[in-house]
Nucleic acid binder design. Sequence first.
DNA 1: CTACCGATATTCT
DNA 2: GAATATCGGTAGA
Length: 202
Amino acid sequence: MGDDPRLTLAGPVPEVAPRLLGGLLTAGGVTVRLTEVEAYAGEADPGSHAFRGRTPRTQVMFGPPGRAYVYFSYGMHWCMNVVTGPDGTASAVLLRAGAVVDGLDLARERRPGVRERDLCRGPARLTRTLGVTGELDGTDLLDPASPLRLHLPDAAPSGVHAGPRVGVSGDGAPTPWRFWVDDPSVSPYRAAAPRRPRPAAS
DNA sequence: CTACCGATATTCT
DNA sequence: GAATATCGGTAGA
């Protein structure tokens, strides 16, 4: 391969997303090999944060590819994406899971009591193990001096699976844009919108 | 392993 | 007020 990574990330998000699998993400003294990702296709995608247009939270998605989009979820968790596609398309890839390949002692120290395979098993666990917070929103992932860096794999990974996205309901639900490789760190599939409706108020 | 449930920011209705 | 790209604790099979 040897493509310019910036050029690779500028491609269509359903093609870019599986190519992040096997990539190395480094932050806070810990490096993770990505094992599970999800594609979100900007303003045309009902499951995307950008579907309703630009907001203070989503502005980074509308910028150039190769930056980190970090957002606060459910009032307590950080989740991170890699912004993809041409400048202005608001596409991004959510990093859902990974396996720690370097800095394991530090990761364990940061997550006391957590089993190794659970350290980055889920998008919010991944950011916590790496120490990623909203301060890193907008970081250039391809800058060697950045506190949060992404290194794309030399070759496209093999054995990639695809399935429906997690937690996405409505029109965007059936789109098979969750990609993963066989690894213990991949979170088990959960159907979208399992939320139990609260008992009807009397 | 499955199932429930609380915490609670951002955004939309 | 309600929904959401979630997790961790607890309970039970």
